[in-house]
Design a protein around this nucleic acid. Sequence first.
DNA 1: TCATTAACACGGG
DNA 2: CCCGTGTTAATGA
Length: 208
Amino acid sequence: MSLLQQHFSALFEPALLEELETKAALISVEAGVLIMDIGQQIRFTPLVLSGAIKVSREDADRGELLLYYLAAGNMCTLSATCCMGDKHSEIRAVTEMPSTIAKVTIEDFTAWFSKYPSWRNFILNSYDLRLKEMLTAIDNLAFNNMDRRILSYLKDKVALNADRILTITHQQIATDLNTSRVVISRILKKLEQEDKIVLLRNEIRVLL
DNA sequence: TCATTAACACGGG
DNA sequence: CCCGTGTTAATGA
C-alpha cells in the first residue's frame, strides 16, 4: 500500500486517489531542508506523507517564531492560496525530520477543487485546523508566561517525535520561541527541580 | 519583576 | 579546542 493510500484512502474517492498517484510528484527529504522561505514564490503545495514540517514566521531584525508543525496527512494550506494568488510566502517551512512530501501543482489543486467534493472538504478542513493551530500559538504568546510556553513547546515535541527523549539544545528552543538562551536554561533548570524533566547535554527527557 | 546582553567557568567529546 | 550548559552582573522595559 502506498503512502498516499495509507493516509487518504478513507478520505478521498478512488478517482482522486488515482489522480494523486499519477500526478503528484513524491519527494523524500532529510531533516532540516528548507521547503519554502519567506518572500519566495512557489508553484506547488506540499502534502506531507511522512515525517513533519516546521512552519515558522520570521522577521529580519527580531528573529523567528515557531507557528506550528505539519504532521503526516496534513497540507500547507497557506502555500496553496499563496501560489494561487501569485503572492509571496508569509512563512518559512523546514523539514523537522526525514519526510516524504507530495507536490501538488496549482493547476491540479484548483481543478480538483471543483471536481472532487472530498478534496474540497480536505482543503477546508486543513484550513480550519491551521487556523486553530494559529489561535493556540497566539494564545500561548499573549496569555502564557515563558514557563508555560516552554512546557507546551516540549509537549508538542514529544507528541511529534512519539518519544519522551528530545535531542535538542537550549539555543534551539530559544530560537523557536524567539527568546534568549539564558531564560531557557534558567526555566529548564527550574522544571528539572520540579521533576518535570531531566536535563542532559543535547538532550531533554520529558517526564510528564 | 522579568527579559536581554555580555561575560565567564566548567566539562565532555 | 569547541560547544553546550549554568550562572552572574548590568541594563532595560
